[in-house]
Simulated assay, not measured.
Amino acid sequence: MTVRVGCSLGYRATGDATLLLNLRPQTHAAHAVIFEALTIGDELPTESFGDSHGNHMLRGRLSPGEHFLRYDAIVAVTSQPDDQGAHASSSSPAAHLPPEVLRYAFPSRYADSDKLVNFAWQHFGHIADGYPRVRAISQWIHENIEYRYGSGVTEMSAWDVLRRGHGVCRDFAHLAIALNRTFNVPARYVTGHMPDIGFPDPENHMDFHAYAEVYLGDRWYTTDARFHVPRIGRIKVSCGLDAVDGAFSTIFGGANLSYFQVWAYQVKHGTVGVGDPLDFTQRLDNQTTIVTEAPYFVPER
């Protein structure tokens, strides 16, 4: 399948500021970037680097005034749905976890698992370790936390979401991460693009999406309490302990986001190029029918 993803961002700076961007998809077994283009207005001075979570970071300096950036990419994705770990082994004890994975088992700013221990054990302590418990946590969040588009609050933690009872995808992800960490299951925050392949969205909300990954056996698996069903075409951009590491932009200094547009939709291979005008009449998703093409990308498993 072929998916076009990207974003157009505008920033208004009142003084000198530094902008940290996290927009480019990570290397992943289920998708591959075929073409991409990043346009930075006014030739802003920038530098690229990778952070400790494997994210592709871009740092730029803003002078006073308006600044516009655009990232556009054509991505090949597998037509197979998420692997959510149904056949995974149980979680590994801390003594056997790889050193680089251990940090994802600790409480963090927005995934404050230390506050949720009693709740977690009361609701999920009787469920078998591994995938059964991970799935039960996802199902409980999906059924008991109301999704309200536009209700996100940047300072809200998993504990706050549980008490409030509603939130956005970021909140669903934080609560899933925190509850899994209470059982010493490493869990991390993930952001990315997710077209509506085989999943009609009548409100047509195409935005950055947040979900979680859990470490079972010897690898990471997707868990997405917002939808609680395997999805097709998920394109991972970043990951980290929580939303601090996964923000698509972080501003240091006097600047504000003034314009924001995101796209993620399936297209026919070879019909759209990076930089072309957005034309949502060409989208093949946002319907129950799944449109596939001759395979030109074989994902790793």
Rank of each mutant, 00 (worst) to 15 (best):
N286E: 09
Q139N: 14
G65W: 05
I141A: 06
E293H: 11
R301I: 14
F124Y: 07
F297M: 11
R12M: 13
S258H: 04
H269K: 11
E143M: 11
D285E: 07
L19I: 00
Y189R: 03
G253E: 07
V291L: 08
F252S: 15
A210D: 03
V244M: 12
R234C: 13
V214G: 05
R61A: 10
Q80R: 14
G150C: 01
A178R: 01
H53I: 11
A13D: 05
C239K: 06
T223W: 02
L175R: 00
R103L: 05
D112E: 03
I34H: 14
C7Y: 03
V272T: 09
V5W: 08
L69S: 05
D207E: 12
A29I: 14
F124D: 06
A187S: 11
Q26L: 13
I251Q: 01
R4P: 00
P64E: 10
F68N: 04
R135H: 15
R109W: 09
T18D: 13
A243Y: 08
A178I: 07
R188G: 02
C7R: 01
R133S: 04
P132R: 05
H87A: 15
H53V: 11
A120H: 07
A128G: 12
A158S: 12
I235M: 06
I34M: 14
I290A: 04
E293T: 08
T78M: 09
Y296D: 15
A264P: 02
P295A: 08
A210V: 01
D224L: 01
Y131N: 12
T250W: 01
Y259R: 12
S8N: 13
V229I: 15
T191E: 09
F35V: 02
T46G: 01
P230Q: 10
F172Y: 05
G253H: 02
T39V: 13
D83E: 10
A264G: 06
Y215H: 02
Y215S: 00
Y71R: 04
I290Y: 08
Q266D: 07
I232D: 08
V33R: 07
D201K: 07
T18Y: 12
A264W: 04
I74W: 06
G85P: 03
W140K: 06
Y221N: 04
H53W: 14
